[in-house]
Amino acid sequence: MPDDPWDAPDPALAYALRQQNWYSAHRDRARRLHWGSEVLILLTTAAATLAAALQAPAWVTAGMGAVALIFAGLRRIFD
């Protein structure tokens, strides 16, 4: 595909295919980042619960809970 879609034999098709490729790449990246953030939230909340069950110091459990809350809040804001 030429760099300038308007130089192609069918400029409209070349332009549409170029946009489709761009959206496909960005869609895949966004999906991976979303899944990663979900896993990160699950891991931090599980770690906070485990720390509480293992009777870790209060500041450790509270810190882990705060981190999990921040991750969940950021996800909610940017969804």
Rank of each mutant, 00 (worst) to 15 (best):
M1I: 03
M1K: 06
P2Y: 01
P2S: 06
D3I: 04
D4N: 14
P5K: 01
W6C: 01
W6S: 14
D7K: 09
A8T: 04
A8V: 05
A8F: 03
P9G: 02
D10L: 13
D10K: 12
P11S: 09
L13C: 05
Y15K: 10
A16E: 11
A16R: 13
A16G: 08
L17H: 08
R18D: 09
Q19T: 09
Q19A: 09
Q20N: 11
Q20K: 12
N21Q: 13
N21H: 07
W22A: 14
W22E: 15
W22F: 15
Y23L: 14
Y23F: 14
S24L: 14
S24Y: 08
A25N: 06
A25G: 12
H26F: 05
H26R: 15
D28A: 15
R29I: 13
R29C: 04
R29L: 12
R29D: 13
A30F: 03
A30D: 05
R32T: 08
L33N: 13
L33F: 03
L33E: 11
L33Y: 07
W35M: 11
S37E: 13
E38A: 09
V39C: 02
V39S: 08
L40A: 15
L40F: 02
L40I: 01
I41E: 14
I41T: 10
L42T: 09
L42S: 08
L43V: 05
T44C: 08
A46M: 01
A46W: 00
A47M: 04
A48R: 03
A48F: 01
A48S: 12
T49Y: 01
T49Q: 09
L50M: 06
A51D: 01
A52I: 01
A52C: 04
A52W: 03
A53D: 07
L54F: 02
Q55P: 00
Q55V: 06
Q55N: 13
P57A: 09
P57Q: 09
P57H: 10
A58L: 05
A58S: 07
W59N: 05
W59T: 10
V60I: 13
A62Q: 13
A62S: 12
A62W: 01
A62G: 03
G63E: 02
M64T: 01
G65C: 03
A66S: 08
V67S: 07
A68D: 02
L69S: 15
I70S: 02
I70F: 06
F71E: 13
A72R: 14
G73A: 07
L74Q: 10
L74H: 09
L74K: 08
R75M: 10
R75F: 07
R75E: 12
R76P: 00
I77Q: 05
I77V: 15
I77C: 06
F78D: 10
F78T: 14
F78M: 11
F78A: 12
D79M: 07
D79A: 11
